[in-house]
Amino acid sequence: MTTDVLLPAEGTVPGAAVAVPVPATPRERLARLGRFLRGRPGLVVSIVFVALVLVAAFVPSVLAPGDPTLGVPADKLQAPGLGHVLGTDYLGRDVYTRVVHGASLSLQATVIAVAVALVVGGLIGLLAGFVGRWVDETLMRFVDVLLAIPAILLSLALITALGFGTVKVAIAVGIASVANFARVMRAETLRVRRSTYVEAARSVGTRWYVTLRRHVLPNAAGPVLVLAVLEFGLAILAVSSLSFLGYGAPPPAPEWGSLVAEGRNYLATAWWLCAMPGFAIAATVLSVNRISRALDGEWARFS
């Protein structure tokens, strides 16, 4: 009201503040996207890489037509080169093929983990934030407890009870990150519920369930979805750590974490066995994080 700080919180500019250009046509929107991406080569690489990983997860044979479990003993432990781009392992299996096919199990587990965390955590947070009072108090104390136990230990406790296997690992990882979603969802719900426009809606007679559906959910969902993308990266790391420790799919099924574990015994002589699947994990997580940063306001601030 009284300030005229030049770049106010909304990120608009005086003068321009009243005339934000509205991308009216799809064509304009596309042009804006083009400009946005042109200034961010890292983001483009990330998107392309994640797309490739997704292809690998669903139709691996497009990228690597070979059989990931078929070994040619004569070719064992070959360094990366022309014949085998990422080398071969101790049974002569092609590392590239195994990494590509490993994406499937690793990503499946990650998707399950994030879905579990999003649904359970989101509901807890929504309930706590919207109902408030003792419901909020109780649910948030529970969430505090989940936060007091380091995620990987909580996952390990769950695995102890559930047993081994990709899906069980995924559920364990998902439950362990419920707390984050619950907190963000609650904070967002509270923020929106206490906002003036929700009070305004109430004061014109809008019923609570209509307010929840039309005002609270749409306005609170954004940050939670951004968190979901970020948690996707963390879940890949958690899932691969657990499969590295040997709780995931039993061999010979390829899975990124267990591929690194297999390569460990040959670390001194055949570094690529460990390095390549690890690169795949790191690159995927990095790309996902880059995309999440782009979604988290970078796009909105861009004009």
Partner: peptide
């Protein structure tokens, strides 16, 4: 920092071993 949190810990350990030990 965002690079460091994206790397799997077990892999970083193994790569350090490969480099500094082997």
């Amino acid at each position: 920092p965002s690079l460091a949190v994206s790397l799997p810990v077990f892999w970083v350990g193994l790569m350090l071993v490969q480099l500094f030990s082997f």
